[in-house]
Amino acid sequence: MKPPPFEYVAAHSVEEALDVLVTHGWDAKVLAGGQSLIPTLNFRLAAPAILVDLNPVSELAFIEANGMLRIGAMTRQRTLERDETIARLAPLITAAMPHVAHPQIRTRGTIGGSLAHCDPAAELPAVCLALDATLVARSQRGERAIPARDFFFGLFSTALEPDELLTEIRIPPMPPNTRYAFREVARRHGDFALAGVALTLQLDEAGRIRAPRVALFGVHDAALLSESAMRLLDGAAPSEALVREAAEAVAHDIEPSSDIHASAAYRTHLAKVLTARALRDALGDALGHATE
């Protein structure tokens, strides 16, 4: 099908985009990479009166590292995938990117678009949760920094107000003893995940796990941190028994739905298995020593 009629505004600056949002509120929709919004329009599941296109806003496409890693909201997913600064400072993003749809989609798709859209099966919200990212939103009222754990509300629903624009993602530097892992299961490479996990953790001098962040996607109405698993892991010595216990615990925090691709029970099973595998990936040699 074809999109319903709408008025189109190509914004050339954040200020121009904010002007449209403050005037039109919920009647306006922000067009980033368009890889979710345009299909939604083609299906006529949405009929916004006005589209604000952010693609000409060059100030929103950047990757900067100055203590904190800062990524502009309009940075293309294909750029994230290939960027050497990202690979060095936030390798969890690099590990996740090949799973984000297909190259043809990543050419257009943006990090900000994916986060603001908040699809429950999307990888990038979980990656931001695991990295303890902060999302920066701007409106004519000012700027506010929203921790990732307070940003993703539920199905296609975020902390963004109708007059706000997601402009930037800030990622704290990973301490040198940080481990990370990314795992997902999809029907076909690049399809939406049936279930997936992105996690980071640190090992202290005594070899104990510190600051674990276990983020799951595809198994709830939005990506979420598994507090139950994180409580078990925090301060514990790595062992295969701990891995299994933490993997079982994620089931307490998730509420997967059933659809034609997978039942809720299967998604729960996947969440546990993938969490165990991701923990083994991240712990690696530390797990080997602990079980000897």
């Binding site: 099908m1 890889q35 345009i38 299909p39 296109d53 297909h102 043809q104 989609i105 050419t107 257009r108």
Partner: peptide
């Protein structure tokens, strides 16, 4: 499909492959 799944409409935009049904 006109929703970005089948890939039949893929073109090169500035040398990179994109779905032409997912762009205005």
């Amino acid at each position: 499909c006109e929703h970005g799944v089948c890939g039949a409409c893929t073109i090169l935009l500035d040398g990179e492959p994109v779905r032409s049904c997912l762009m205005l």
